[in-house]
Design a protein around this nucleic acid. Structure first.
Lengths: 228, 228
DNA sequence: CCAAAAGTGTTGCTTGTACACCCATGT
DNA sequence: ACATGGGTGTACAAGCAACACTTTTGG
């Protein structure tokens, strides 16, 4: 051992967002270990040897949703000395965005996990409510700097669906016309020749995200300040 | 012990920015422990029991600069398994902004520390160059979302000095007139009746940051996109 | 026919950007 | 007198925001 210093348990807590029924969802489960066993908690786990924080988060995600290749972003480190009454644990929070229709429902069920609307997050253990707050902020920042949704929407989506997603993320409404124009100006989605006729009488064209390469993004600053 | 899991050394690495001679500076020192002893490194240390990550960073700052009450912001966790050849160390990076004229030069000297321009950062140990990059990004984001400089400039400063600071942070020039108007519109600084006559023939009014309370900030989005 | 979402257009306003231009003064 | 940074003003462009209006079709 080269260094003589105290060591710590290091955990990852995943703020896993999905989107369904025009509502931003958060994956929560009943914690299965003491302390606070049975209470609502974020999906989390401890970092293992030979594993980076991101590796650990991906492992947790795979174990709980069956998904790989997930978009992950660090939120922050939470390290208050008494944040976990069971032991001194330093936790790195990460936010993950997943397509809710692709996850393994059986796995989620086995984990005692449930999707809950971000508007109805129950009291969570420790500082997890605070982590959710910060995680949502991180998502909002991301969604203002670029057009988010690739990881949350199905392959094909209408403008209405994209707008609903943004309304869920920012917890407010956007003017349909202005939102459309703003998104189009970013030049990152393209229209298909198929129409969705389920969600409106007239029918709305499906769109899809362009490939990373062809979506020429010259400093795309989104700056969503559209009012309802 | 409640949990059975591997434990890790947790470090803090501080990206300490100061500002002097129209140049953004970074505090570096010669590492005094093996491995990589003597090489350039960020100011850092290990988290102790009973100490949060922020506590540890403040301790490191105090030990190296003698300063307390420093603005601190988390950058990210760096946790690649082999990032430190001496041992498995998970490091939380934080960015700190200090007024360079207030630090304890003697302390800094004892630490073998030196201020280096961010434009001339040498090869650092481990992943510290990457940490500096991320730290600068964090500073830039902060400086675009609000008027930064409280912690970097002296009490009284001219528009020229503030603009120079921003030019150092963003590594580009700003139009003097437009910069002035933009900053004034934020309504967070006030003019004093004293003039600085050293840096220009005409003399420039000193300004200072208003108190947090009286600087009514209605969603101040800075959005520095001024061209040279 | 009516409601409701899709999609387009118009207009006023705010803000960014590029300048021109005067001011004060040390050299 | 002139070069230099300070400070103000102007004019155009771009983007935001509010909202009118037309299209389409299921009920």
């Amino acid at each position: 051992m080269t260094y003589q210093h105290p060591k710590f348990l290091v955990a990852v807590d995943c703020v896993i967002f999905g989107y369904q029924d025009a509502d931003l969802k958060l994956l929560l489960h009943h914690r299965d270990i003491e302390p606070a066993k049975g209470q609502w908690s974020l999906m989390g786990g401890f970092v293992s040897d030979g594993e980076s924080v991101e590796d650990a988060a991906m492992r947790v995600l795979y174990q709980t949703t069956g998904l790989t290749n997930i978009y992950l972003e660090q939120v922050a480190a939470f390290s208050a000395v008494d944040r976990d009454p069971g032991a001194r644990v330093i936790s790195i929070a990460l936010v993950a965005l997943i397509r809710i229709d692709e996850h393994d429902r059986e796995l989620v069920r086995k984990n005692g996990a449930h999707w809950r609307s971000v508007n109805e997050v129950p009291k969570l253990i420790f500082d997890h409510n605070e982590i959710v707050e910060k995680g949502l902020e991180t998502l909002q920042k991301r969604a203002s700097n670029e057009l988010a949704g690739r990881e949350l929407l199905p392959e094909h989506f209408t403008f209405g669906q994209l707008r609903s997603l943004y309304e869920a993320i920012f917890q407010r409404t956007f003017d349909p016309g202005n939102f459309r124009k703003k998104v189009l100006s970013l030049n990152v989605i393209e229209r298909l020749d198929i129409k969705n006729t389920k969600e409106s009488k007239k029918g709305a064209y499906y769109h899809r995200f362009k490939d990373q390469n062809e979506s020429n993004d010259p400093e795309r600053i989104f700056k969503i300040h559209l009012k309802g």
